[in-house]
Each structure stands twice: as structure tokens, then as C-alpha cells.
Amino acid sequence: MDNVNFKVYQGQIKALIGPNGAGKTTIFNMLSGFEKPTKGVVKFKERRIEKLKPHQITSLGIARTFQNTQLFEELTVLDNVKIGCHLKGQVGILRAMLHFPPIEKEEQKIHEEAVHYVNLVGLGDKLNVIAGELPQGERRLLEIARALATEPELLLLDEPAAGLNSAETEKLAETIYKIRDTGVTIFLVEHDMGLVMEVSDEVIVLNYGRKIAEGPPLLIQKDENVIQAYLGGKINA
């Protein structure tokens, strides 16, 4: 990763693309605190976050999903999302387990919120299904619902369409629009160019750790450096 600069504005759907090994996930890891940059600055709402830990970044309003879906396999859809709600709840997981007095009101609120997020991603009819029994497309939607339950301002989606069929990808695109319409900004890494070109307001292209292009999808599709990066050949970066 070499001197990469970019900006994400509130309300945008922005995509990060590039060949394998270009550094896309490294950027996501640096935005979410899983890796520290050797050099450079990451600001979220003008506050520097590049040295913060993942949970601190989550509490500031950034949530993410992973390439390999990471769910609590033996819990239900609803309980997976409730865990996301607890991360920003006032009572906390430990007090919830000990059933401290304010817990009932808080639990009711968390239940309602969790149901709301499950409905938002279109899994409302699967509230009590065990996560491990869901097909891949629904697993991804569930991971998104859990991330949303932390009430982020910025949602990072790492290859959300990986392993999905075309119907599942179409449902994912609808869900991404719905989430944006609730006021959440979305930044995604994705290999599925159909999805990227359909949903993104702007696209950043990385190659060998360098930004080689940035702009609206229609311009990116025609960019000579981008075409060469994907088809092979010399890059004029």
C-alpha cells in the first residue's frame, strides 16, 4: 500500500475495486482498526482513528462485514442481531446476563431494534432460524443486519456478493439501497462488477497498492489504466 488518498462523503455508496492482492482488504482493515498503517492518516468525521482498536472504532460509528461470513452459527437470526444491538446498548452483555433490574426494558428495546434490522435486510420470516442453516446469500444479509445493529454512520462491506447467485446479488443490491436510504454511508470492496456499477456513486480502483483511478462508474469503465490493470499490460499510474 503506497500513499493512497481518498475521501468518502456522507450518504455515498462508494466502491473499492482492483485485482487480487491490490490492497483492498488492507484498506478496510486500516479503516476498521484491524491493521495499523505504517504511515499516513485516517480521519472519521475529522477525528484521527488510525491508531484506535476495532471496538473503539465501532463505538465511533463504523461497522464492517468480512469476506468470510462470521456469524454465531448455533444462535438464531434474531439472537445474532441482538448481539450487535448489545454492543451499543447501555446495559451491556455482562449486566444483561446477570439480569440487573433495568434489563427488561432494555431487552424489549433491543428485541424491537433487532427485529427492525432483520426486516430491513429481508429476513423477517427467518427470525428463529439457526444461522448455521441459512444459505450463503442470507448469511451475508444477516451479517449486514448485525453490523447495522451497532447503528453505524459508515458501513464497510467486504466482498458482500462473493459466493452469491444472481438472484441473491440482486436482493443484496436492493438491500444496499435500502440501507443508504436510512442515512448510512456505504463503502464496499467488491469483485462483482455488475453490482459495483449498479449501486456505486463513485469507484476507487487500486492496483499493486496504488490508486490508479477514482470517479463515477461510467468513467471508470472507460479508464485506460483500469482496463489495463484488469486485462494486463503496462499501467500509466
Binding site: N3, N5, K43, F44, K45, E46
Partner: peptide, 30 residues
Amino acid sequence: MLLVEAINLTKEFDGLVRWTTSISKFTKGR
């Protein structure tokens, strides 16, 4: 409103990453 700004973001591979990458390539016969 500007939400995220990345400025001169640089990540150098450390020795451990280089070593594990080399081993991985070797075991794959590349």
C-alpha cells in the same frame, strides 16, 4: 459532509508477512 479521509495511507509488508508469503508460494510450487 466529509465522513472519511485517508491521507497518504501506506502499509509496508513486515518481515513475517514476507516470510509467510514466500513459504506459501513455495508450498504451492510457484
